[in-house]
């Protein structure tokens, strides 16, 4: 029984971190219909900010989290204004943004490599490799703090979306862009703010990733498929769905890793991606796609 509980805890611990990593990706898709393939590269950028904050000045990555979020959000504003806003008028908007974000991912990777070298890094606050033991069962404190921070940020985002006026506008734009515009919503401003929040969330997630996993500029390629599986399972654009998917898949992967083998635990995410596209393409909370 202790082994079962332990595996469950480890799955939930991993899910907490993945939830925030996927949330920004989901928000950007929901509002702007952009599958941001560069999202994990911005997570790596956030991780570098947290790493250097810790290494140079001893600032805890959890303290660096809002700094990384704000800096990345500002980059998001600039990217939107100078790159994505122009593409919004393109007849092949969706196709163009996929290519654009793919290129952006490579540019960010190259820029990070140029600034920080390709050396792998990991931030090492004391709690990152500690654990709370309750009998035979342990809770890794690094993942615990990361998960709690992740849930707090996502909870705050959910409250903002649900109760603030601007949150209404974001949700309206997510549900029906044209109708929102007809009702007076400045969808361009909403899109820019959503993109900035999405990239800011990537920065925040990066601060958490910096002490949970080691990273280097090219690491983002390993993350994109995992994050896509969360967003697709949750329902493209549904942040709540992404969070639930993160916990579900992480727990399943943990049990698969424990009872079947580690090789298969990673495969769980990709298998889920295939199955959900095959059986329920709208995901858990997404809208059913309309037949043309």
């Amino acid at each position: 029984m202790a082994d079962f509980i332990q595996t469950l805890i480890l799955g939930l611990a991993l899910g907490g971190v993945l939830a925030l990593m996927g949330a920004g990706l989901s928000l950007v898709f929901g509002v702007m219909r952009i599958v941001n393939l560069a999202h994990p590269s911005f997570i790596i950028a956030g991780a570098y900010l947290a790493y250097w904050g810790f290494r140079l000045w001893g600032i805890d990555p959890l303290v660096m989290l809002p700094v990384a979020a704000v800096i990345l959000a500002a980059i998001g504003v600039l990217l939107y204004r100078f790159v994505f806003e122009r593409e919004a008028r393109s007849a092949k908007y969706s196709e163009m943004t996929v290519l654009l974000t793919f290129a952006l991912a490579m540019v960010v990777e190259g820029a990070l490599g140029g600034m920080f070298t390709n050396t792998q890094r990991v931030t090492s606050p004391s709690y990152a490799t500690d654990a709370i033991f309750i009998g035979d069962v342990f809770i890794p404190t690094g993942q615990l703090y990361a998960g709690l921070a992740s849930l707090a940020i996502i909870g705050g985002l959910a409250l903002f979306l649900k109760y603030s006026r601007f949150g209404y506008a974001i949700r309206a734009t997510t549900q029906n862009r044209e109708a929102a515009e007809l009702l007076g919503v400045n969808v361009n401003l909403v899109s820019m703010a959503s993109f900035a929040i999405g990239i800011g969330l990537a920065g925040a997630a990066g601060a958490l990733v910096s002490f949970v996993f080691s990273f280097f500029p090219a690491k983002h390629w390993e993350w994109i498929a995992v994050l896509m599986s969360l967003v697709v399972l949750g329902g493209m654009g549904s942040i709540l769905g992404t969070v639930l998917a993160a916990f579900m898949l992480s727990v399943v992967a943990a049990f698969v890793g424990d009872y079947i083998g580690s090789t298969w635990s990673t495969l769980t995410f990709f298998l889920a991606l295939f199955l959900i596209l095959l059986l329920r393409p709208q995901g858990l909370f997404g809208e059913k796609p309309e037949l043309a």
Binding site: L10, A253, D258, G261, S262, T266
Partner: peptide, 18 residues
């Protein structure tokens, strides 16, 4: 004895616990 996949493996705590 156990192997982890060449790419994309993140479940290190679970493996270490085993």
């Amino acid at each position: 004895s156990e192997r982890w996949p060449e790419e994309g493996f993140n479940d290190w705590l679970n493996l270490a616990n085993q």
